[in-house]
Design a protein around this nucleic acid. Structure first.
Length: 276
DNA sequence: ACACCCTCCTGGAGGC
DNA sequence: TGCCTCCAGGAGGGTG
């Protein structure tokens, strides 16, 4: 599932190939993929616009266009694949049955949106805040100091797992990296954020940043569906400490990793290192 | 304010 | 082999 490191990797790939491209054709094959505006308006407004920038906010991809902002969320299984043009990537089949939206550019290049589960969404907006306005801070923003993070945790009486998954609290973490960060910080997912000592919240912040930086360097975690813009899997799955390792030994203490449900999500914990 | 459940979707895995 | 049921979980919505 694309979380911050995967979306960052995709954004970097798309930036290389898409900046300067002008939209020549918009094909929408599954209409519910377009969240806003209507599919007709989405198509007509997008035609002729040039991509000026490609960025990321939380798990959202953000394309600065000549007149609007295009925002894409990949949710569970969404893939954005570059095709044609001067890219040397393996030919991506835009006629794939799961390719629900295809942008073609005047250069001959194309951007293919593929999504087996159809949960992903596109927005075309004049003001990005319409979609991104309620997101919390970026975990890797140097402005998110240890002091500020500690104050954020103290302000709410919620379990760490719920808080870190809540995109209005912090933008970009999903189930995999929350479990990895809590393990690294030796904190139990059910622990109330408001009970953390300064030293513990600093540990959590450092763990979160380390986990994300490592995953970005590894170009993301590919468990099944994730691919970058050139259809290449990441390699961070080889570096996971707890996610998907239920029953296997903790890399720190050797105890068996458990899998539990917290906040309605599969949650991987070392019962010894992460005492409740 | 917080916890819990449902919906959106599909394919893969496990049971029988 | 095949059919059926469950499960994965991001986000938004509703309810208690």
């Amino acid at each position: 599932m694309p979380e911050l490191p995967e979306v960052e990797t995709i954004a970097r790939g798309l930036r290389q190939t898409l900046v300067g491209q002008q939209v020549a054709d918009v094909a929408v094959r599954w209409e519910r993929i377009v969240a806003s505006p209507s599919v007709d308006e989405f198509r007509t407004r997008l035609l002729g616009q040039t991509i000026l920038s490609v960025g990321r906010r939380g798990k959202y991809l953000v394309f600065g266009l000549s007149a609007d902002t295009l925002i894409i969320h990949l949710r569970m299984t969404g893939q954005l694949l570059c095709a044609g043009g001067h890219t040397s990537a393996p030919a991506v089949a835009c006629d794939d049955p799961h390719a629900h939206l295809v942008l073609r550019f005047t250069s001959g290049a194309a951007l293919c949106y593929r999504d087996v589960r159809k949960f992903g969404r596109f927005w075309l907006v004049a003001d990005p805040a319409e979609v991104l306005g309620s997101l919390g801070p970026e975990p890797l923003d140097p402005g998110l100091t240890a002091e500020r993070f500690h104050a954020m945790l103290l302000a709410r009486r919620r379990r760490l797992k719920d808080l870190l998954l809540d995109q209005t609290f912090l933008a970009g973490l999903g189930n995999i990296y929350v479990d990895e960060a809590l393990w690294k910080a030796r904190l139990h997912p059910r622990r109330l954020g408001s009970t953390l000592a300064e030293e513990e919240s600093a540990r959590l912040r450092d763990a979160m940043c380390a986990v994300l930086r490592r995953a970005i360097a590894a170009r993301g975690t590919t468990l099944r569906d994730y691919r970058d813009a050139f259809n290449t899997p990441g390699s961070n799955q080889d570096g996971l400490a707890v996610y998907g390792r239920a029953g296997e030994p903790c890399l720190r203490c050797g105890a068996a990793i458990t899998r539990d449900i917290v906040a309605g999500r599969g949650t991987h914990i070392c019962p010894v290192c992460q005492g409740e």
